[in-house]
Simulated assay, not measured.
Amino acid sequence: MQAPPPGPRRARARRAVSEPLPPTRWALGGAKNVGYGERFAELIEQGEDVFGEARLADAMLARGSRVLDAGAGMGRVGAYLLDHGHRVVAAEPDPALVAQARRTWPGLEVLPLEILALSPDALATAGAPDAYDLVVCVGNVLTFLAEDTEVAVLERLGSLLAPGGRILAGFHLQRGPASARTYPPDEFVADATAAGLRVDHRFGGYDLRPVDDLYAVWVLSRA
């Protein structure tokens, strides 16, 4: 029996993988994003705690695990996990944030690539693993993706999981950054399902507080 054709959203997502990558909402945000990296640098200089996501990620891992920090920003999460004994590869397409991450944490391996560009060939060329025990995709990365690429991005992240691997994701449901989209939980779950993933857990924050309407933290694995 012939399988039914994919729905419009899934078809658009698949085309996005083979065609030139469309601009992300982050890239289109332009001046609206100015100050993000500087603000985190200031917080770190002041001794503020900016590692809540990383502590949860570390608690999910055995020592020496392979971690992909997808959409690493200025590198704070990946650097923390590196310091705690994991093999970390960070991927970040924004040149300014790549430069900041490399300057701030010289030991952190940062690939200047978007998530959809993390092909097996690209990872092999960089000498990076092609499978990971944990993929971290936090800090509103999923709300800054290019339009209609959400399923394709989730498929790519799922394809990079080692057996038993998981994805840790998080984003604002309300009051998010100005250039980000709103990503309703039911739509995210539908996209994750279409990408061959299942939702193992949902929380209201990286401290594992109960679900709320402001922020969502997700733990995903292959269906």
Rank of each mutant, 00 (worst) to 15 (best):
Q2C: 07
Q2D: 02
Q2P: 15
P5A: 11
P5N: 00
G7I: 07
R9C: 11
A11Q: 07
A11D: 02
R12A: 15
A13F: 09
R15H: 13
A16C: 11
A16E: 00
A16M: 07
A16D: 00
S18P: 01
E19L: 12
E19C: 09
L21C: 04
L21R: 07
P22H: 01
T24E: 00
T24W: 00
T24R: 00
W26N: 07
A27V: 06
A27H: 05
L28S: 06
L28A: 12
G29M: 05
G29Q: 02
G35D: 10
A41Y: 04
I44S: 12
E45V: 10
E45F: 11
G47T: 12
V50E: 05
V50G: 10
F51A: 15
E53G: 14
E53V: 03
L56W: 14
A59R: 15
M60I: 03
R66W: 03
V67P: 02
L68P: 02
D69A: 06
A70T: 01
G71H: 02
A72F: 08
G73L: 06
G73I: 08
G73K: 03
A79Q: 03
Y80P: 04
L82P: 10
G85K: 01
H86W: 02
V88I: 03
V89E: 01
A90H: 01
E92R: 01
P93M: 03
P93L: 03
D94R: 12
P95N: 05
A96C: 13
R102F: 10
R103H: 13
R103P: 06
T104C: 15
W105T: 14
G107H: 14
G107M: 12
L108Q: 06
E109N: 14
V110I: 09
V110E: 07
P112F: 10
L113S: 03
L113K: 01
A117I: 01
A122C: 07
A124K: 09
T125K: 15
T125W: 10
G127R: 14
D130L: 12
D130C: 15
A131N: 08
Y132R: 03
V138W: 02
G139P: 06
L142C: 13
L145F: 09
E147F: 07
D148Q: 11
E150D: 15
A152K: 09
A152Y: 05
A152I: 10
R156V: 04
S159D: 07
S159N: 09
G164W: 06
A169D: 03
A169Q: 00
A169P: 05
G170P: 09
L173F: 06
R175F: 13
G176W: 00
G176I: 08
S179N: 13
A180C: 11
R181G: 12
T182H: 12
T182S: 14
P184D: 01
F188Q: 04
F188P: 06
A190C: 08
A195Q: 00
A195D: 00
A195L: 04
G196H: 01
G196F: 01
H201P: 08
F203C: 04
G204L: 08
Y206L: 08
L208C: 15
R209G: 15
P210Q: 02
D213E: 15
A216K: 05
A216S: 15
V217Q: 12
V219A: 07
R222C: 10
A223F: 10
